[in-house]
Design a protein around this nucleic acid. Structure first.
Length: 340
DNA sequence: AACAGCGTCAACCGCATCCAC
DNA sequence: AGTGGATGCGGTTGACGCTGT
């Protein structure tokens, strides 16, 4: 079945793109607009396969891409969306129009995954230390949630999505310090920034069709918070939660999840895409639906199960204006405890 | 100073899906 | 309805830079 790779041709160049190649590609797209990638290598003389050209454009040269440090809000968005959607990086990226799916995927794999693991082990440690308090707060059902979420990286069920959310909130705090250490680009990156500058003029005059796909994406991610500067913490990294912090965290989520808790878990196992359905349906009234054919199938499959009410998390995700605020509020709420 | 180990991220690969015919 | 080319997506790789010894 497998089709021969598109790059099997002899003489096709691989590896990092040079600034010269970038300029050729950019100027071609500037003239013809993105699309018809098959024709790009032929028409430009680039010794690259069409796939490579498309990838280079979408992941690096496309105007409007933000590179470098992820803001705490972006991190929060990624963590929440990953919990909801799983590794659907393209879908997640559609909520962060300035970031590419590749970027988000890389960031998740290199930073967030690791961090969540740490948090998870801290939480596990906490469970061992305060088993009674834990049960009192969340009731007996939490033990299931904890168990099924022993690996925070697994594809989440409805219930452990909420569990992850609690991790996510704290992770966002702990991750602040990472932000500042993550580097953005080297020598070559700066050369592509130059290309971006070249593109600025084009952005103003480019045909609508060229940018339509960029603009039409649903955006929960508001422009970077003007409070961006305030988000910087002083570089402290708190991996272990205090008992009080943990209680605060879980009780907050407990409040959030009153609705979710009443949702029968048995009907939702392996079907976290119910969340996707809700997201899509709600979006359709105001914003374009995530154009994901795969989701459609999953949604159909899940239609036969009961539809849960929106959790706080989902409401949060759907509430554009609240998106940044809630996270900030959570940070304010927790900061006296966790950011000592 | 030299080397090894590790982290990051751009790019590649293979499969899935779309779409025109 | 079937087929094949084009495009999209997610997992993985490998080069490069940084840090510790």
């Amino acid at each position: 079945m497998g089709r021969p790779p598109c790059c099997e041709k002899v003489g096709i160049k691989k590896g990092p793109w040079t600034p010269e190649e970038d300029i050729v590609l950019v100027s071609y797209i500037q003239e013809h607009g993105p699309g018809n990638w098959r024709a790009v290598p032929t028409n430009t003389g680039l010794l690259r396969c069409s796939k490579s050209c498309r990838l280079r454009w979408t992941n690096y040269l496309r105007p409007g891409i933000k590179r470098g440090n992820f803001t705490p809000h972006e991190e929060g968005m990624i963590i929440h969306l990953q919990a909801l959607l799983g590794n659907k990086w393209a879908a997640i990226a559609s909520y962060l129009p300035q970031r590419t799916d590749n970027d988000i995927k890389n960031y998740w794999n290199t930073h967030l995954k690791k961090k969540l693991k740490k948090i998870q082990s801290a939480v596990d440690h906490h469970h061992q230390q305060y088993p009674q308090a834990h049960n009192n707060i969340l009731g007996s059902s939490i033990s299931d949630s904890t168990t099924c979420n022993s690996n925070p990286l697994q594809y989440p069920t409805r219930n452990n999505v909420n569990d992850i959310t609690s991790h996510a909130s704290t992770t966002t705090l702990s991750l602040r310090s990472i932000n500042q250490s993550s580097s953005s680009g080297g020598i070559y990156a700066s050369s592509t920034e130059n290309i971006s500058r070249l593109l600025e003029g084009w952005m103003r005059t480019s045909p609508k069709s060229t940018n339509a796909n960029l603009v039409s994406k649903p955006s929960l991610d508001q422009e970077e918070s003007p409070k961006g500067g305030q988000d910087k913490d002083e570089g402290c990294d708190h991996d272990l939660l205090s008992h009080e912090a943990y209680e605060s965290m879980v009780s907050f989520d407990n409040l959030n999840n009153v609705n979710a808790a009443s949702w029968d878990r048995s009907s939702t196992n392996n079907c976290n895409s119910s969340s996707i359905k809700q997201v899509s349906e709600t979006q359709s009234s105001t914003t374009p639906v995530i154009p994901n054919e795969k989701n459609k199938h999953i949604i159909r499959a899940c239609d036969i199960t009961s539809t849960p009410p929106l959790s706080f998390l989902e409401k949060w995700l759907l509430d554009e204006s609240a998106a940044g605020q809630v996270l900030e509020d959570r940070m304010m709420e927790l900061s006296p405890i966790t950011l000592v």
